[in-house]
Design a protein around this nucleic acid. Structure first.
Lengths: 233, 233
DNA sequence: CTGGATCAGATTGTACATTATTGGACACAG
DNA sequence: CTGTGTCCAATAATGTACAATCTGATCCAG
């Protein structure tokens, strides 16, 4: 799990949880992401407290946080369950990304310094070097790539929203591989994006990002559908 | 306060709070919205528990929820405070609205039934009849108008996001009046919007909504700035 | 097979112990 | 006399233990 970590953008609203509450949040979240906790599985407060050697209040707090991020569903008097991350859920999140990310990108193009671009190229070089050999590493690098663009945006709310969604999507896509076609396209789009940023082509960059996010969403959804069909068939 | 209520869209994710937790959430939220609780005021768990005649756990739960909605800021070991809803905060939220609402609208135009349109026209008639005489009523009607358009959207996430933001903005704009210019514009845009929907002009409707939201944001921000200047001067 | 009493299991609420922060008193150096 | 730093106590957040309440399922009676 530790190699799944990615640094959040600077200045993102902290969880506001206490030490134990926060680490519990991390632990349970990792259990969900890694699949150790099944979709729809009940999350019994007392059990979790026992397992993580603490008491119930920190667990409740962590569950509330996870609910906020979309990893857990809570219903009154019936407790918490692992949210089954289904196709609708993923589609919803991607669609919001398609709306928001281009706007963040457009702003970045107007603000990018040579250092920013150097950073992007460095990360892109690492992505190309890794060339999807280590999927987790790719996921982390790709997230870093986009974080560079978004983290200094004045609209912290939008950036935070993007980050939350990103985390969920990483949790999902972790289960699948990239098709060859998609690999090529990701590299191509990143390169092209850097070029547009260099040229100050804000509109083109924004349009490209929209396409990039949309393609990414479509790709994951197709994988999910395929896996679904395989399970059923 | 009770006349400030507006019905949330159907199928919005429930808070997941228990009975007491949920009502506490409502109470504290109303106190923040109405200004009975000052910006940055500390929210002491024990006090709140006492005041609302309950114990600390439900209060903690309610505060977590309020944090999720953006009404409260929590920092570890230092407790919760009323979030000062400043201009940046409002601008951030409006900008996200400008990105999301047109997309929701576009879809609605393709799906609207004659009943939907009749509903919109009915609400619009009430808005015109009220003609901003009762600002709270206007706020509620205006919210209903947009809810009709968005609440059945397949992207429940986007709709929920919109609703949360809407609630915050209502909390803010409650403190201000509409300028005459803005009143006229709101009415004009609503009428035009209905016409576009009738004609199935999805793109035009989306563009108009973008303009509508942007104008609304600008209006509120100007009011805030004016109030700020008045305080300072 | 239906329907309601019953009961185990879990959530929710209460009381309290522990631990962290904060502001102020006080001593001391400049 | 003023500014600085340390210690301490008040205050409040956080964690623990437990009581109360709710839910869902099981198991009979009809």
């Amino acid at each position: 799990m530790s190699d799944f970590k990615a640094k959040p953008p600077v200045g993102i609203e902290p969880t506001g949880a206490s030490k134990q509450g926060d680490s519990l949040y991390q632990l349970i979240r990792d259990d969900i992401i890694s699949g150790r906790l099944q979709p729809n599985e009940r999350l019994v407060v007392a059990d979790l407290a026992l397992r993580h050697d603490t008491s119930t209040n920190p667990v409740r707090e962590a569950l509330q946080l996870l609910r906020g991020e979309g990893f857990v569903v809570i219903s009154p008097n019936r407790g918490a369950r692992v949210r089954p991350i289904d196709q609708n859920f993923v589609r919803d999140i991607y669609e919001i990304g398609v709306l928001i990310e281009p706007a963040l990108t457009r702003w970045f193009v107007g603000m990018a310094t040579p250092e920013d671009i150097a950073q992007l190229e460095k990360v892109q070089a690492e992505i190309e070097e890794n060339n999807f050999a280590d999927p987790l590493r790719h996921s982390e690098l790709d997230t870093r790539f986009h974080t560079i663009m978004y983290e200094r945006h004045y609209n912290q709310h939008a950036a935070e929203l993007w980050w939350k969604h990103r985390e969920v999507l990483r949790a999902v896509s972790r289960r699948y591989n990239f098709t060859l076609a998609r690999r090529a396209q990701v590299l191509r789009e990143h390169r092209q994006l850097i070029q547009f940023i260099k040229d100050g082509e804000a509109e083109k960059a924004a349009a490209l990002v929209a396409q990039h996010v949309e393609g990414s969403g479509r790709h994951v959804l197709e994988q999910m559908r395929a896996a679904e069909a395989a399970r059923a068939g």
